[in-house]
Amino acid sequence: MHLPDAVDTLISLAREGDMRALARLISVVENDGTQARQVVERLFPHTGRAHIVGITGAPGTGKSTLVNAMARVYRQRGHRVGIIAIDPTSPFSGGALLGDRVRMRDLVGDPGVFIRSMATRGSLGGLAHATDDVVLILDAMGYERILIETVGVGQAEVDIAASAHTVIVVEAPGLGDDVQAIKAGVLEIADIFVVNKADREGADRTFLALQTMLGLGPRRVQHHGRTMTVHEEAPAPDRAWTPPILKTVATRGEGVDAVVDAVEQHREHLRTTHEGQRREEIRIRRELYRILQDALLSRLMERLPPSSLDEVIQQVTSRSVDPYTAAQQLIARAETQPVTR
């Protein structure tokens, strides 16, 4: 049977467990047709149960392999797992090569795992928008743990991971000195650090560099040839979360149980403190802002003649008007004009 086009039919098929209907719903929200809103409206009442985990880190740190290993542990523990693997769209062709499935072949044939590769596609925060919607669909379809994998390069990708309930930042030895980790700007968003490829030379150094950077643990310093331990003050009793640093060899599954344990502890931490509420509010604020931006922008565009944007771009290009003034002029023009199309 070929798939029907109607969103309502797709939703009821997907809720009965039809994998293809679920996959088609994701395409619908990804392509952002007029049906996307309909999907979200219908499914929203069934959401809010999933725990969303963002996994980010530099290329080559082993994110896909870790996600694969984590999904296996979650399956052993009886959870259904949704995976969203995001890779960049080429800014030149608009095409994308999505290769994360290569590392996720262990999960094939398990109906409790759904994997979807997504391209960033670019354009006006579209990625985050689509990811929110795909998460929502998987949540509504009963996937209890949703793992989102993004390359930790670029603001949009970091934003996606940062909007998860639990953020895992993956590091690996041999990818550069510890200054690289600071540059990436992802230290601040991590709830859990994973040093993957921990069987490789330099793993201890990566581990120590992270520890030092985070100012964690008793510090051992070499002072005139003697090792001395500097005791830090006890952490404030505000039950703040201290990001653990965990070592894994994801290809062999080593240490991955501990990562999943840490995610579950963090989930518990969010549930028992105000932090969970706070994050949910940030998530929803971000989502609302984006919807408002999109809606207001398309309203503005509806009120402007199709050529007006090109005219203004020409004026700015020839330096006869600055971009701020140009934007104000466009808004003023839209406000006085009736809807033209």
Partner: peptide
Amino acid sequence: EVIYTGIRQTPEAIVEAAAQED
């Protein structure tokens, strides 16, 4: 948008990936 799944795939794995990736 190309989804590359790599070598040594079973027919079942290929069809499942094709379904999930639509």
